[in-house]
Amino acid sequence: MKTTQNDNGWFRRILQWASESESEGADAPEDPEKQEFQEYLEYIDAHDYIEFGAYRYMRYQQRKELGLDEPTSHYTAEPPTPQKKQKGKKSHHKQGVLRKQLRWYQVASVLITCVIFWILCLVVMELPEFGALDAPAWNEVVQRYLQQGREETGAVNAITGMILEYRAFDTFGESVVLFAAAISTILLLRTPNQPLRQRKAGDEILKELSKYLLPIILLFGFYVILYGHISPGGGFSGGAILGAALILASLILGAGEVGRVLTSKRVTYITVFSLLTYAVMKFYSFYTGANHVGWEIPKGEAGHLFSGGFLLPLNLCVGLIVACTMYTFYTLFIPTEEE
């Protein structure tokens, strides 16, 4: 229960803020961060309201013009180190409401975690042995998938056969989740009128190496997608590899080079087209399968590339969706010229 001893810098700062009204006296605040915040409050009293971030950026620009190079950011990305100065002062503070709440929160969260850990340990001790065949997870569903999956889906890889044939609707939902995540990230991060930062030309060694390495990675990605129903792999794995290859290309060749070919519009078009193709193909096979129309795609001989009915194009669709989503994330997260 070390976390309750509140010896962290951030924690003490919060407490100081919580009991600010008592401690604010004639003495000037020693904490530069607090001082800055005080100045900010005075500023917004005198002028209009302005966001704290914008205010700090303005102050930074002013200092830069004056030639003062001192670091202005006290909000580092990590919790600041404890400040020894305030140790003696702390005893004068009255305990604020927030302080009690925070301590209660920490104690409660540690307690909840301990209880959950204990319950899970008890459950694990009662679980069937690891690797045992008589576990209840081995029911008739698994037996069916393993025994007749090869004939029914035409796929050697039982996992691909399962996620694209027996549970294809589920996989469609997952693809839509990916698309939705990409769209919301675009909404949050896109800065339309700002040019991409032109990276300096990469190393000569990297460029030469990538000339030979990139085609191999792309080829491997396509292999993993296309042979997904025969060997380990499939749309999700191969799509991730393809996306990683695209990201590597735009890291080495510069974001502009790849971005000229794969514009964000085209990437979105590819994703939507793949989703629609997936939906149409699965609608076709559900409709014909449920109504016994007899127009089903022949399964072919398992183990060959063109076998398993729609498995190959479905894998390709899923792979394209995953690769495009990964590439979209990357293009949105690279730093722009000016924030």
Binding site: Y145, I159, I163
Partner: peptide
């Protein structure tokens, strides 16, 4: 058992998104 494999395969990709 192929069922957890399929579930986890989709889960990993959704986790990154």
């Amino acid at each position: 058992n192929p069922i957890p494999g399929g579930l986890v395969l989709t889960g990993i990709v959704v986790a990154v998104s």
